[in-house]
Design a protein around this nucleic acid. Structure first.
Ligand code: MN
Ligand code: MN
Ligand code: ZN
Ligand code: ZN
Lengths: 145, 145
DNA sequence: GTGTCAAATTAGACATAATCTAATTTATTG
DNA sequence: CAATAAATTAGATTATGTCTAATTTGACAC
């Protein structure tokens, strides 16, 4: 019993498994992209991800995203002047953010050298990510034509 | 004539030198931190940075920040769930963002390896930044006490 | 200096993204 | 099942950023 990986990951993160929370995780795991909170909210209220009723209020969608980020199950990517985007933390990857359309795409992971010791002082480093900026393939094509 | 470095940088970026725009640049260059648009707006309306009247509307502050970012004179740092922060692009540096208080701090620059060719596909790379996350010195001290 | 005009500024309305509140419901444990 | 802390909810509220249309101005030509 309890073979459902989503349920297990929620419990491991100290979070109750509710239909609303389950639906957020299920949606993020089924979608390679990086949806916004608004997109997740809409999707969860459109389709059934949990077997039970997945309807969820806006506040709950935001609450759950916050809780999931705190539990380390979801990553939040801030994009200038636009709504934050989310992904289920699966394989590690870097991110490419399009200047023009704001889309967030995964870039194959590779190790990044840490700053030389002393350069961080008394700060406590948790993670280190690389952000690439420029034009996504679609916007680059549109630009050059 | 025209020895003022701010004035020269604005002209180099194809932007007129207005008191409001000058004041934004002057404030950013005098402040090592990474202020938000709201902080810049307030500061510019409090102190005199240009010799002339630096009063600026909120719209103008945002317009100028956008123009300065486009001209490559200012960098914008997006922070999850918080207002964007800005710095005058001077020496290159990486950024450390505090999980707890959202403060953005500079980290000494060092070269970062590019992704292996092919990994970016048809995307057009403009820049590449390294973001460190964790607790700033102040928040780390507060946490452990 | 004066005239010209695209660029910039402005106040305030508007839009969007995210959070808060307080009442209600529910998942989990015993 | 009962108890209860956690989660959900609708809707108000706050925070951040953008837009509009009227006005002013910086840069340049003369
Ligand atoms: Mn991703
Ligand atoms: Mn900086
Ligand atoms: Zn794009
Ligand atoms: Zn901090």
């Amino acid at each position: 019993m309890n073979t459902d990986p989503i349920k297990r990951s929620l419990e491991a993160g100290g979070l109750r498994c509710t239909p609303q929370r389950y639906a957020v995780m299920a949606f993020l795991r089924e979608h390679e992209g990086h949806p916004t909170a608004a997109e997740i909210f809409e999707a969860v209220n459109r389709r059934c991800y949990s077997g039970k009723d997945p309807r969820s209020s806006r506040a709950t969608t935001y609450n759950n995203l916050r809780d999931l980020v705190e539990a380390g199950l979801v990553r939040e990517v801030a994009v200038e002047g636009r709504a934050a985007r989310f992904d289920a933390k699966g394989l590690r990857n870097h991110h490419f953010i399009c200047d023009r359309c704001g889309k967030v795409e995964d870039v194959e992971w590779y190790d990044v050298p840490r700053p030389r010791s002393g350069s961080l002082g008394k700060r406590v480093l948790r993670e280190c990510e690389l952000i690439f900026r420029g034009l996504c393939a679609k916007c680059a094509a549109r630009r050059s034509s």
